[in-house]
Amino acid sequence: MQRALSIRNVYTAYGKADVLSGVDIEILPKKITCLLGSNGAGKSTLIRSILGLTPPREGEIIFEGLPISGHPTHSVVAKGIACIPEGRRVFPKMTVKDNLLMGAYLESSEKKIKMNMGKVFEIFPRLEERQEQLAGTMSGGEQAMVSIGRGLMSSPKLLIIDEPSLGLSPALVSENFRIIRKINDAGTAVFLVEQNVRQTLAISHYGYVLSQGRVTAQGTAEELKTSDEVQQAYFG
């Protein structure tokens, strides 16, 4: 099986206590791979491990055949991985436009930056209207758009998204899922962390369930929908 990113036997700790204890996950190219799990399961920690913000203390992370664990965040990002972090994390005192430009920080071609910004504005016309507004003064939903748009500005090979629908209205949540689907249709591999199980499984190809730092179930979206673990945890 071909893979975009492999996480192999990863242990990650803050201080002494392990939050991840031996996680194995494969992220498929051009597919949506999702990670489900309750609060505190270690989902965001796994993302931090991939991106080098909290490097794993043991195990391997391999992107397109090359190890990236232990590399500084900026060189991981340079390989073509972008992240839409938990809680949006827009730069509050920068304009919407500058936030988007930060997303293309490692892109040197002006032409590509322009093109990507055009694509983002196509998905979120609202951002084009509000280009000059300070991101910190935007509404929660608008900030989510800025954060997603910023993640697309580098035309990444792999996009990692941590709970994009947190705090959004149901209408916006559905809109978000549609957009993620669209991003993936364009060929970008997506690693989606979500609590919104039904909608996540509806758009994902493959999924994992993380519980207390370990993978407790995995399978295709169809398999997970009917699996006992997921049924008990989320639909029971």
């Binding site: 991106l51 913000l53 500084p72 965040t73 900026h74 990002v77 340079a78 992240c83 972090p85 994390r89 730069f91 509050p92 005192k93 920068m94 500058d98 430009l101 930060m102 997303g103 920080y105 490692l106 910023r150 580098s154």
Partner: peptide, 18 residues
């Protein structure tokens, strides 16, 4: 812009490749 980004949110600046 990178200096401003680091000042506002160091971690996110790093996520952008800074």
């Amino acid at each position: 812009m990178a200096i401003r980004a680091v000042a506002q949110d160091e971690e996110t600046a790093r996520l952008m490749g800074v």
